[in-house]
């Protein structure tokens, strides 16, 4: 009898643990979704204000390197060119945020951003992205 009571308690404990783990996972996803969305909004605000150094700081290291190599100039100048050449169009409000693990896609009214989670927070890995049928997005700014 003692074993059976213990078994029941163990099953209940396991069920409660699973429920808490599930709720915890939901909380983590919601937290990440909010953080990724907020980073996208900050990125677009910096773009609209012409704060190129802030835009550079928001980019993932690989994306910044690729941008500088392609433009053959420093990041602030390269990103200014990208804005002027419409590689980074005005974005507007956030329409949807998808978070899977450490990656996110933020769909805005006029643009789509891809982000990755780094130790210091979310960084933009690609911006100025347009969807293409059955192919990856075409992005004005992206990593190598």
């Amino acid at each position: 009898m003692r074993g059976r009571r213990c078994g029941g308690a163990a099953v209940r404990a396991a069920a409660v643990s699973l429920a808490l783990a599930g709720l915890g996972a939901c909380g983590v996803v919601e937290e990440r979704r909010n953080a990724a969305g907020a980073e996208a909004v900050r990125f677009e605000a910096a773009r609209d204000a012409g704060r190129h150094a802030l835009l550079c700081a928001a980019l993932a290291p690989g994306t910044r390197d690729e941008l500088e190599e392609t433009a053959r100039s420093g990041c602030p100048e390269a990103i200014r060119q990208a804005v002027e050449e419409d590689d980074l169009p005005p974005a507007g409000a956030v329409r949807a945020v998808d978070v899977w693990g450490d990656r996110a896609r933020v769909v805005l009214e006029g643009d789509t951003l891809f982000l990755s989670r780094f130790p210091g927070g979310w960084k933009v890995t690609a911006a100025g992205c347009e969807p293409r049928p059955d192919r990856p997005y075409r992005c004005g700014v992206k990593g190598g």
Partner: peptide, 15 residues
Amino acid sequence: TAAYNEERLRSLEGP
């Protein structure tokens, strides 16, 4: 589904 979507987002594809 989660692993596949994480990989798709890394490859600049929608989930």
